[in-house]
Design a protein around this nucleic acid. Structure first.
Lengths: 219, 219
DNA sequence: AAAAAATTTTAGATTTGCCTAAATTAATTT
DNA sequence: AAATTAATTTAGGCAAATCTAAAATTTTTT
């Protein structure tokens, strides 16, 4: 089945809201998409005839199985493009959303297959969100804090527990960002500090407190 | 000024036709864009009020200076994306047009700046067409045949004189394609054959006849 | 130079996506 | 349980981009 850009945006919007609450209501979606309730009702009728949503007049709606898959494939495109923009083109992670919002509607599936391959089939996007696979399945990612990573293993940074500016300053100093590959060299039992190696940089030492605020996953 | 996808496609269509004939006529553009003459007339009115074309009812039309620049910036995007698809994602050059046709409408100029930089500001796309710069200026590219390239110089393959399947077979065998970097090692005066080195492959020898059908440019 | 043919434009519909304002239904108060 | 408030839908319209069919203009033929 084929969807217009507008339909795709509605599907994505419903997906984001229903993950929080189950059933979605008209006003909430209108707000999410910066549009009016009447426009939402119009589109709901269309999505219902296209058998993408479950919808009873006046009683809320949600994506059905098909709809969820469509949503996840759009999200897959969005996140792969974000990964590309950050790790290949050098954008800051906070600047890529709007651009990926356009790129996600480019329709070629062959393109996404090749892009995914080119990027090394990443599992997590630059914001730390998981990237659905080509079947629309979200990868199950065990996030653990860096302090729990055994010696000599390498893991990928997925998110940061403490987003204070002091923390971000430290991370910047250590050259640690989301997507960084970190190897644990040694754990010093005396104070819980760790020697780690970030990507191709020289080894460095971080405190237990910092390590416990850095979340990583194994590949 | 901002243009819809449809407007951009009309502008591009006019650009392609006017380069051959000067003034463009309604039926020709309708054919080019797979639409009907009446639709073209509608759009011409719009492009005229947007001061992008010169247009007298019943007497043909063409882009004005502004319009030409807009067209060239769209073509720039198109060709940079084609370059990306072929040389980064590994598409065949004959499969990329439709995809680039969608990508060219993504609006961010920052994106194109960074993409261009990432690709190494190429001057020629995978079809051998020149890529306009960020001001919409087409690079002036002296194409010469490989036979005229002095010893020890490196040049980039831009197009092929003879497109027969026999020729393409040979080029494939030698690993020569558009965009290949070729260095001339030696010219054998006896029969005009040349020893060349293609990209990072081992040196090989090609006949004068082949060399004269391979067009290259200096950087 | 008049008639015929070809091209182009206008007139009037259609589809998609959006809107406002009014009507309907559901939820909350009293 | 009736009244009020909130949420949702319907009705009717608008703008962009397209179409068909008819009218207008230009070009070509005789």
């Amino acid at each position: 089945m084929n969807f217009s850009i507008s339909e795709e945006n509605y599907i994505k919007g419903i997906y984001h809201l229903q993950s929080e609450t189950g059933l979605v209501n008209t006003n909430a979606l209108a707000k999410e998409l910066n549009t009016k309730a009447a426009s939402v009702t119009d589109m709901l009728k269309k999505l219902k005839t296209k058998k993408i949503i479950q919808y009873e007049k006046y009683h809320g709606f949600k994506l059905n199985e098909m709809g969820n898959k469509v949503a996840l494939l759009i999200i897959r495109k969005h996140r792969l493009w974000e990964y590309f923009l950050v790790f290949k083109l050098g954008f800051n992670w906070d600047k890529v959303h709007a651009i990926a919002e356009e790129l996600e509607h480019v329709s070629s599936t062959e393109l996404i297959k090749k892009l995914d391959n080119y990027l090394g089939t990443p599992k997590i996007d630059p914001h730390g969100d998981p990237i659905p696979d080509m079947n629309g399945k979200l990868p199950v990612i065990k996030q653990i804090n860096l302090y729990g990573v055994p010696k000599n293993l390498t893991a990928t940074v997925s998110s940061v527990g403490n987003q204070s500016s002091q923390m971000l300053e430290m991370l910047k100093h250590y050259g640690i960002g989301i997507g960084s590959r970190v190897k644990v060299n040694k754990l010093f039992e005396f104070d819980g500090s760790m020697e780690i190696k970030v990507s191709k940089q020289a080894a460095c030492i971080i405190s237990e407190q910092v390590a416990k605020n850095i979340f990583v996953y194994h590949d």
